[in-house]
Design a protein around this nucleic acid. Structure first.
Lengths: 364, 364
DNA sequence: CTGTTAGCGCCTTCAG
DNA sequence: CTGAAGGCGCTAACAG
């Protein structure tokens, strides 16, 4: 049916081995022969058969990227940056890069995460980047660690991007091997944000948390708590009352969480959201309740996604360099950049103060 | 190195053909044998070699999805919907779906579009979904049409989602074959939006257009123009002056476009943006200029992305059922749903009026 | 229902 | 520098 190497070889009057060598470019071939082959490739519009070469070479051009929600720019930006690293990467002779990114949307489901890993393993992916917070269920952690370990053993490079280094759920120790990590400092970022609000004078700081059982949620919450605890005004009962658990990462979580919060603690003067998207929902609920931002209530997000600078009011948040993290994860996955000792790269954060936070009202 | 079919066969005491049949499930096998094989698969932790089976079967499990910008929710939502259709799809026996979606980020570049198509062709993708507006350069159109035709001829199903049916740049006729289209009514949507503003009493309606040479940009602009022309107040010179061309689909395009617009036509009482994201930038620029929305200037977007309902003020826009379009494209790509006659499905739109549009000021 | 037998298209020694 | 030959792991007839 399709044109094969042999066809090209015949057309160019050489052996198929020669064509293969010209195409992969990893073996000396005389200039004249080379050109003849290249011309034949052009004329016949030959396109390599990926599966066949993957089989023969026992390697593939696929790079897997697992994301929790492909419709969320948080992941889109990371995925885009990872893909960016594939360009101009190890391309043979043409302008065509060799590697292809496979973006898999897990929807945050542990089962699907495992499923996609199987699929990628089946395709013999060269590397896999897992992005976003992990689910902390011990059973799943163990299953995940086992599978990743097997993949790594099979030569697939694994990079965790935006999630903490893997523990196997047993001893809790890190999984060794070709397992690299690019981590965010979610704790530090959340702590900085809460300290910012405390410094402004807020004492009743609400927190609308993300999905339960996710590392990202836990770490941000821990940073928030750490800041509160370190402050003279700390009151455990109040902190507990002002924290709404178990939301998602969507605006509706912010909206609903805020309604709960306002009902439970009308004295709230500031609300921290699990991320920027949630913060949007928080703002909507506050406005609906007739509260002005930041005059009546301050609001802050997390991540600094592009829309945060355009929100009204512009959103105070913590910037995570997603682009940079993704690019680095991509390079690690491709082996373009040497991994740091210990295999863990921690990416910084930056407090971005905008118009959505201000001191509480005098009577607050 | 890795466990192979033969290993499993030996372990289960059957031939490799039997194992293959059990795994693909498309051939009768005795229950007892079946179980034995399945147990062996478990024990050996066997994972099919995708490339090998793709080679032997001359078919693959890969579904390509081309997007202009993976960090843009517009594409994320579509891609997510396409992927959703792969689930519970033709899975053999396990809980593992067979197909894998390959999301390719073209960044809107025609060359990369072609490049990714080559890569996908190399992988012998089962189907390819191309999303988003196309670039209208005749040369590129011809190259694209040629490549798609070849892919289709090779058995790859091609679905265009959110772009008009392909013309080959020569006769301009549609490319025949396994080429399906799910199109948006960008013209109709834009027209409805402009009519809405005209009905509110606006006569100085600015338009911040998207990237030049893209079908989406042109169609929306045409819809806008059509509405203006059909109205008694039509003034070609004014329409031209109030239209800012050549922006992108990012907020900065809206921001900068609006600054140009305000400078050029301070009498503007309403601004239509190329899409919702651009509208955010429009709002930012208006606010910066001290103009209130919608009291001083009305604003409207296009697409109705999730954040539009949370913007402040909430954004009037045209809702495109992206989710539905993506799902349909996915089904067409998988052959799950029979294509309509002519191969073109047009998806409706819906005018969503929110708080960002209002009648112009009395003196406007 | 199950085993045997050829390839699928390419890569990669090994000779020349 | 180039050609010949074997095999990568699986599927798909074909027998039985």
């Amino acid at each position: 049916m399709a044109v094969t190497l042999a066809d090209v070889a015949a057309h160019a009057g050489v052996s198929s081995a020669t064509v293969s060598r010209v195409l992969s470019g990893n073996y000396p071939v005389a200039g004249a022969t080379r050109n003849r082959v290249l011309r034949a490739v052009e004329e016949l519009e030959y396109v390599v058969n990926g599966p066949a070469s993957a089989l023969a070479a026992a390697s593939s051009d696929l790079l897997g990227i697992l994301v929790n929600d492909i419709a969320d720019p948080f992941f889109g930006i990371i995925a885009s940056a990872v893909q960016g690293e594939l360009e101009g990467q190890g391309q043979g002779e043409g302008p065509v890069p060799r590697k292809l990114a496979v973006v898999c949307n897990t929807g945050g489901s542990p089962e699907r995460e495992l499923t996609y890993l199987t699929l990628l393993q089946r395709q013999r992916a060269a590397a896999i980047v897992l992005t976003g917070g992990a689910v902390e269920d011990p059973e799943h952690s163990a299953a995940l660690a086992a599978r990743l370990r097997r993949l790594a053993a099979g030569g697939t490079r694994i990079v965790l991007c935006g999630r903490p280094p893997l523990s196997d759920g047993q001893g809790g120790g890190p999984v060794p091997g070709a397992l690299l990590t690019v981590a965010f400092d979610n704790r530090g970022g959340a702590r900085a944000l809460t300290e910012h609000l405390l410094a402004l004078g807020h004492r009743h700081i609400g927190y609308v948390a993300g999905p339960a059982e996710r590392t990202t949620t836990r770490h941000r919450l821990e940073g928030h708590s750490a800041a509160l605890e370190a402050h003279e005004s700390f009151d455990p009962a109040r902190a507990e009352r002002l924290t709404v658990h178990g939301g998602g990462y969507h605006r509706s979580a912010g909206y609903e969480g805020t309604r709960v919060l306002l009902h439970r603690a009308p004295e709230t003067t500031a609300v921290l959201a699990a991320n920027d998207t949630v913060a949007l929902g928080v703002c909507a609920a506050l406005r609906e309740a007739g509260l002005r931002i930041p005059e009546d209530v301050s609001v802050a997000g997390f991540d600094d996604l592009p829309f945060s600078a355009d929100a009204s009011p512009t959103l105070t948040t913590v910037r995570l360099p997603l682009q940079e993290a993704g690019a680095r994860a991509g390079r690690l996955a491709l082996g373009t950049q040497p991994p740091p000792r210990g295999g863990v790269t921690t990416i910084g954060h930056e407090l971005v103060v905008r118009a959505s936070t201000a001191p509480p009202r005098a009577g607050g």
